[in-house]
């Protein structure tokens, strides 16, 4: 793999990492496989598209707004659509998140149609060279921003009261409840945070790639693999999983052809599930 390949994979990996963390937190800690996650990511893209078109606000700024909005949406969904169904088991939460996805997909189709959209910021074409490799500016910025957000998420989870509460219910629900942690509140905040991370990913994604409702399925396929590779609910695990997947895809595209790359990711995921169910890194939570 040449240096340029390496750089491309790494830059893509940053975005994958951020995208995977939100999904992994929701699954590993709140216990919900969120089939609407792809829809939430896309909402982040489309929201920043509106903001860009109407107010000419750069996505790197509007992501604060899309993140906040999706946090609220995630909290709302958890509280009113998921929390009441938790005791019904996996079938119910799966099918309801899928239903939410259908609704969002329908809204997107009505408002924006199935066409591909792009956000072209003024500096979209610029790039710079470093150590002999090309760095497209937007890709480099998304990588940087993704890294910062991942770091902040980790700090939030380990150093704030709420973060510690979330960690406590994730590790030992009964124990945490016994010392007065409100478990449902923690699950809700964690789920909302995951949704927000998805939305921010969507906004960042929109500065590089074009997007349409079809992208939903692509995203869901990726985040499953990333979350499983990294071990559920594990921030650094998911980050590593995202970068790993980016490398697998990039090198897979070279060595076996791009039409096989999806299968490679899936096969690796199934193997990890069977052989190392706690993920490649192996430690549970926040490792």
């Amino acid at each position: 793999m040449g240096l340029q390949m390496f750089v491309n994979a790494l830059l893509l990996g940053g975005l994958y990492a951020l995208m995977g963390i939100g999904f992994s937190l929701q699954w590993g800690i709140s216990g919900i496989i969120n089939l609407s996650y792809g829809a939430m990511v896309l909402l982040g893209s489309y929201l920043s598209l509106i903001i860009f078109n109407m107010f000419h606000i750069d996505p790197f700024i509007s992501m604060l707004f899309t993140g906040a909005l999706l946090f609220l949406l995630g909290a709302f969904i958890y509280r009113f659509a998921l929390q009441p169904l938790l005791k019904g088991g996996i079938v119910f939460t799966l099918i309801v998140t899928f239903a939410i996805r259908l609704i969002v997909e329908n809204i997107i189709l009505l408002v924006w149609s199935a066409d591909y959209r792009t956000i072209r910021v003024s500096y979209a074409g610029s790039n710079f060279q470093f150590l002999g490799a090309f760095f497209p500016l937007t890709k480099f910025l998304t990588f940087l921003v993704a890294g910062v957000i991942i770091y902040l998420t980790y700090q939030f989870m380990t150093n704030t009261k709420i973060g510690k509460g979330i960690q406590a219910v994730a590790l030992d629900k009964e124990g945490a409840m016994a010392v007065g942690v409100d478990d449902q509140k923690m699950y809700l905040i964690n789920f909302a945070l995951g949704t927000a991370l998805g939305g921010v990913t969507g906004t960042l994604w929109a500065t590089i790639y074009s997007f349409s409702p079809h992208v939903m399925d692509v995203i869901i396929g990726r985040v499953f693999i990333i979350a499983i590779l990294g071990g559920l609910g594990n921030i650094w695990g998911a980050a590593a999983g995202g970068i790993l997947l980016a490398f697998v895809e990039t090198s897979g595209a070279i060595f076996v052809g791009s039409h096989w790359q999806e299968a490679i990711g899936l096969v690796i995921m199934v193997l990890v599930l069977l052989l190392r169910p706690h993920g490649l890194i192996g430690k549970k939570f926040f490792g």
């Binding site: 009441p84 169904l85 239903a99 939410i100 996805r101 259908l102 609704i103 329908n106 809204i107």
Partner: peptide
């Protein structure tokens, strides 16, 4: 135009 949303909403209603 609304059939996806209709299916989604119907599903949620049923499940609840």
């Amino acid at each position: 135009q609304y059939h996806l949303a209709a299916l989604g909403i119907a599903t949620i209603v049923i499940v609840f």
